[in-house]
Amino acid sequence: MSIQHFRVALIPFFAAFCLPVFAHPETLVKVKDAEDQLGARVGYIELDLNSGKILESFRPEERFPMMSTFKVLLCGAVLSRVDAGQEQLGRRIHYSQNDLVEYSPVTEKHLTDGMTVRELCSAAITMSDNTAANLLLTTIGGPKELTAFLHNMGDHVTRLDRWEPELNEAIPNDERDTTMPAAMATTLRKLLTGELLTLASRQQLIDWMEADKVAGPLLRSALPAGWFIADKSGAGERGSRGIIAALGPDGKPSRIVVIYTTGSQATMDERNRQIAEIGASLIKHW
């Protein structure tokens, strides 16, 4: 067993022997301040990774656009098919120029040779490549099948209805392509620590998230040296922004954090800054 596999296998073990965790309302004060600064709703939840206990939450059962955070769930569904012998990570998928959609920095470079399922998941999570996500959605049967996968996990809230990039439209009061912070946090925890996926697939999923290259201005910008984070960000229309993450000190994750916002007129930089400040408060009061 590799060191990384050992780390993920012992996530519940280490967490069980940690000192009790206590909620700190100071972080919620910052979440509410972010709402004021952005002029928009902000949803927040913080779960203990081992027990699933909610440590703090704000608007945990209000719907927010998922945006690209759905790509972690998508690759979880792909990995479940791999575990069941219905898919192979090494299978190569070929596609054409007509398949390319807006923001496809990886797939646009491989029109000639195609990409493997493993490479597509890596591109979808680490670079948020939209064509990679659409190609992977095709392998599982489309958005409705991802929703069905989530329902089978016990998540009857999260739903995907459309493809990239239309799913980022974020129309107010439109339930399409949305989740709730509580539902997303619980589902992410199941994917990373539950028995739904094999140990190898859980490790692969967290490795992809740990290698995320496009979430630097968010929670990662607030992390002290030595902290662990595996995350996936999302951005959408109407001032929408979000991030889902597993993080913790001492090089291992111990909490799940989900943050979503929508309806702001603020710039992307300002949305990023507010999420980073929430992260800084979380870490300060850990």
Score class of each variant (00 low, 15 high):
M1A: 02
M1R: 01
S2L: 15
S2V: 08
I3N: 13
I3H: 12
F6E: 06
F6G: 06
V8T: 14
A9Q: 08
A9I: 13
A9P: 15
A9R: 08
L10N: 06
L10H: 06
I11A: 11
P12D: 07
P12H: 13
F14L: 09
F14C: 09
F14D: 00
F17D: 03
F17T: 11
F17E: 04
L19A: 15
L19D: 10
L19K: 15
P20T: 06
P20Y: 03
V21E: 05
F22L: 13
H24L: 10
P25A: 06
E26T: 13
E26R: 08
T27C: 08
T27E: 03
L28C: 07
L28K: 09
L28P: 05
L28I: 03
L28Q: 08
V31K: 00
K32G: 09
D33P: 01
D33G: 13
A34H: 03
A34K: 04
D36T: 15
D36A: 15
G39P: 05
G39D: 12
G39Y: 10
V42M: 10
G43D: 00
Y44L: 11
Y44F: 11
Y44G: 02
I45R: 03
E46V: 08
E46G: 05
G52P: 04
G52E: 07
I54M: 11
L55Y: 11
L55H: 08
L55Q: 08
L55C: 08
E56G: 12
E56Q: 11
S57C: 09
S57L: 09
S57R: 11
F58R: 09
F58Y: 15
F58L: 09
P60R: 12
P60H: 12
F64L: 02
P65H: 04
P65R: 02
M66P: 01
M66I: 10
M66F: 09
M67H: 07
S68D: 00
T69S: 06
L73C: 08
L73Q: 05
L74G: 02
C75H: 00
C75P: 01
A77Y: 12
A77N: 13
V78R: 00
V78K: 02
L79P: 00
L79Q: 03
S80C: 09
S80F: 12
S80T: 11
R81K: 13
R81C: 05
R81G: 06
V82Q: 06
D83N: 05
D83G: 05
A84L: 10
A84N: 15
A84V: 12
A84P: 03
A84I: 12
G85L: 08
G85D: 10
G85K: 11
Q86T: 12
Q86M: 11
Q86N: 11
Q86R: 12
Q86V: 14
Q88P: 05
Q88I: 11
L89W: 06
L89F: 08
G90R: 10
G90K: 14
R91P: 01
R91V: 05
R91Y: 06
R92T: 11
R92M: 10
R92V: 14
I93Y: 06
I93M: 03
H94V: 13
Y95C: 03
S96M: 10
Q97H: 14
Q97K: 14
Q97L: 14
N98S: 13
L100R: 04
L100S: 04
V101Y: 08
Y103W: 15
Y103I: 04
P105K: 06
P105Y: 05
T107Y: 01
K109M: 14
H110R: 10
L111C: 11
L111V: 15
L111S: 08
T112E: 15
G114L: 04
G114W: 04
M115H: 03
M115D: 01
M115I: 07
M115G: 02
V117L: 11
V117H: 03
E119M: 06
L120H: 03
L120Y: 02
C121T: 04
T126V: 10
M127T: 12
M127A: 08
S128N: 00
S128Q: 00
S128Y: 00
N130R: 00
T131K: 02
T131D: 01
A132K: 00
A133P: 02
A133D: 00
N134H: 04
L135R: 04
L135V: 10
L136P: 00
L137R: 01
L137M: 11
T138W: 10
T139D: 11
I140W: 03
G141L: 04
G142W: 01
G142L: 01
G142Q: 04
K144L: 13
E145Y: 10
L146I: 09
L146T: 04
L146C: 05
T147C: 08
A148G: 14
A148Y: 13
L150C: 11
H151E: 12
N152L: 10
N152K: 13
N152G: 13
N152Y: 13
M153C: 15
G154Q: 09
D155A: 01
H156D: 14
V157I: 12
T158D: 01
R159C: 06
R159W: 06
R162S: 10
R162I: 02
R162K: 07
P165S: 07
P165N: 08
E166G: 11
E166C: 11
E166F: 13
E166H: 10
L167I: 13
L167Y: 02
N168A: 08
N168T: 07
N168F: 03
P172W: 09
P172Q: 12
P172E: 13
P172K: 10
P172I: 12
N173R: 13
D174I: 03
D174K: 03
E175V: 15
R176W: 07
T178A: 05
T179G: 01
M180W: 11
M180L: 09
M180C: 14
M180I: 12
M180D: 11
P181R: 00
P181S: 04
A182K: 14
A183E: 12
M184H: 02
M184G: 01
A185Y: 00
T186P: 08
L188A: 08
R189P: 02
R189E: 09
K190A: 13
K190P: 03
L192S: 05
T193I: 14
T193P: 01
G194L: 09
G194E: 14
G194S: 14
G194A: 12
L196Y: 15
L197Q: 05
A200Y: 13
A200S: 14
A200G: 14
S201N: 12
L205W: 03
I206T: 14
I206L: 13
W208Y: 06
W208S: 03
E210T: 10
E210A: 10
A211F: 09
A211C: 15
A211G: 13
K213V: 11
A215D: 02
A215C: 04
A215E: 04
G216M: 10
P217C: 07
P217Y: 07
P217L: 08
L219H: 03
S221M: 11
S221D: 09
A222L: 07
A222C: 15
A222P: 09
A222W: 06
L223Q: 05
A225M: 15
A225D: 14
G226H: 11
W227H: 02
F228T: 07
F228L: 06
F228V: 07
I229G: 02
I229Q: 02
A230L: 05
A230H: 01
A230E: 01
A230Q: 02
D231A: 06
D231C: 04
D231N: 05
K232S: 00
K232N: 01
K232T: 01
G234Q: 01
A235P: 00
A235W: 01
G236I: 02
G236K: 01
E237L: 13
E237T: 11
R238V: 09
R238F: 14
R238N: 15
R238M: 14
R238Q: 12
S240H: 06
R241P: 00
I243C: 08
I243Q: 03
I244N: 02
A245T: 05
L247F: 05
L247E: 02
P249V: 06
P249G: 05
P249Y: 05
P249C: 07
G251E: 11
G251M: 10
G251T: 09
G251N: 15
K252L: 10
K252I: 11
P253A: 13
S254P: 07
S254H: 14
S254T: 14
R255T: 05
R255W: 01
V257Q: 01
V257Y: 05
V258G: 04
I259G: 01
I259K: 00
Y260Q: 02
T261V: 12
T261S: 09
T261K: 03
T261E: 06
T262A: 09
T262R: 08
T262P: 01
G263P: 04
A266D: 09
T267L: 10
M268R: 07
D269L: 11
D269C: 11
E270N: 09
E270P: 03
E270S: 11
R271E: 05
R271A: 10
R271C: 09
Q274D: 04
A276R: 13
A276G: 09
E277W: 06
E277G: 10
E277Q: 11
I278M: 09
I278K: 00
I278C: 04
I278E: 00
I278Y: 01
A280W: 11
S281R: 12
S281G: 08
I283C: 10
W286P: 03
W286M: 07
